[in-house]
């Protein structure tokens, strides 16, 4: 066993940290878009909206049923060959698009389950005061579903942050891509990859702290 090159690792820290913002940006944008898309799909599924319900089922089935890596390659390398207007698409955009659609499919099912779990009386009370379905969803049902779905959704966000590393396969120099390049230059693969693992881990742990705060906030109506 050779000793770790700690000096190399220490020097690499600031180099890699520069790429953290891009990783977080890709994950955050994809998360927000996925949340919106997933909520829409969940509502469509719950309300059994004609036509759209069938389309949503198909969408969820496809994006849950195929590997994320395959989807990313399809978006970045495949689709531009068929649709020429997509040739201008860059790796970051393709990655965000892929992450959004992939995770929206999973999140839609979690949100749907959370909506269905909201007590029937909440729907009736909303309707009885004269709310429209949209008002009922926005003001009463979704906020309550959010509390139930929050831990699962944060889990997906964690997964999403880590999955941004796949953007490296689309030629994006993000955290993983940068590490790969550094390692290829120094041949210190263990140092580089254990360091990037620690960085991902630290990001996720920070998020876990925020998750606890979020859950306390969402749960305040249920504290006695």
């Amino acid at each position: 066993m050779r000793p770790l090159d700690l000096d190399y690792m220490l020097g690499l820290v600031p180099v890699l940290l520069k790429y953290v913002p891009l990783t977080l940006a890709m994950a955050s944008v994809a998360m927000v878009l996925a949340l919106v898309l997933a909520s829409l799909m969940a509502i469509i599924r719950v309300m059994k909206v004609p036509v759209l319900d069938g389309f949503t089922r198909f969408f969820i089935s496809f994006f849950r049923g195929t590997p994320l890596l395959v989807q990313l390659f399809l978006f970045y390398y495949g689709l531009p060959q068929v649709f020429s207007f997509l040739t201008a698409i860059n790796g970051v955009t393709a990655a965000v698009m892929g992450l959004t659609l992939h995770f929206a499919a999973y999140m839609a099912e979690s949100i749907r389950a959370a909506i269905v779990g909201v007590d029937r009386s909440q729907w009736e009370a909303s309707l009885s005061v004269g709310m429209t379905t949209a008002q009922m969803m926005r003001r009463i049902i979704l906020p309550q579903a959010a509390r139930v779905a929050a831990p699962t959704l944060v889990n997906y966000f964690v997964d999403m942050i880590k999955s941004t590393s796949l953007a490296f396969t689309l030629g994006v120099t993000e955290l993983m891509g940068a590490t790969q390049k550094e390692a290829a230059g120094s041949f210190l693969y263990f140092e580089a990859f254990i360091l990037v693992a620690l960085i991902y881990w630290a990001i996720v742990e920070t998020l876990t702290v925020l998750q606890r705060r979020l859950e306390i906030r969402l749960g305040k109506a249920h504290a006695r």
Binding site: A125, S128, V129, I140, Q144, R147
Partner: peptide
């Protein structure tokens, strides 16, 4: 207006 047997207050 409607008053429910199980109150059905908005929990949030």
């Amino acid at each position: 207006s409607f008053v429910f047997q199980n109150y059905a207050l908005f929990a949030n």
